[in-house]
């Protein structure tokens, strides 16, 4: 059942990314472009997505376990470290450069053409080397 629920969740996510136009790199860059012809669409997408998600978080304390069993995720320790800042900045720069983030990059694979496959391949390569970079970063911090 877990896989079925995950498929439904992924389907809703993919459909939402598609109809909202978030796989259009111009719309994403247009939202980031505050000095140009600003496109507000992404703000509506974010706002729209946060509403059902906030309701879901509010429901969590009322339920003992998730529908498929297991446990709800723990609240992460509110630790804002170097990796969060460096990672988010690096991600944001890449996001602005191409106008794609991980979700839309996957959602657009079937119609975006070769460039989207190249983007996803590069992204996966980055994800594969990231754990090594993370431990290297940790080592340097520990040494200083």
């Amino acid at each position: 059942m877990r896989a079925v629920y995950a498929f439904v969740a992924g389907g809703l996510f993919g459909a939402g990314l598609f109809v909202s136009g978030m796989t259009d790199t111009l719309k994403v860059q247009g939202w980031l472009d505050v000095f140009g012809d600003w496109d507000p669409t992404l703000a509506f997408v974010m706002g729209g997505a946060i509403i059902p998600m906030a309701i879901a978080w509010a429901l969590v304390p009322r339920r003992l376990t998730p529908l498929a069993g297991g446990a709800f995720p723990n609240r992460p320790t509110p630790q804002v470290g170097r990796e969060l800042i460096i990672g988010s900045t690096l991600f944001g720069a890449g996001w602005g450069l191409a106008g794609l983030c991980p979700g839309p990059a996957i959602a657009s694979l079937s119609y975006g053409g070769a460039a989207h496959w190249v983007f996803v391949a590069a992204m996966l390569a980055g994800m594969v080397v990231a754990p090594g970079l993370r431990s290297e970063l940790d080592r340097r911090v520990a040494r200083d």
Binding site: G16, G47, I51, V60
Partner: peptide
């Protein structure tokens, strides 16, 4: 689209 995305997230959280 945003509402769909958030509903997907809600399903993933409440079900899985």
């Amino acid at each position: 689209g945003g509402l769909l995305i958030g509903t997907g997230g809600a399903v993933y959280l409440l079900a899985n």
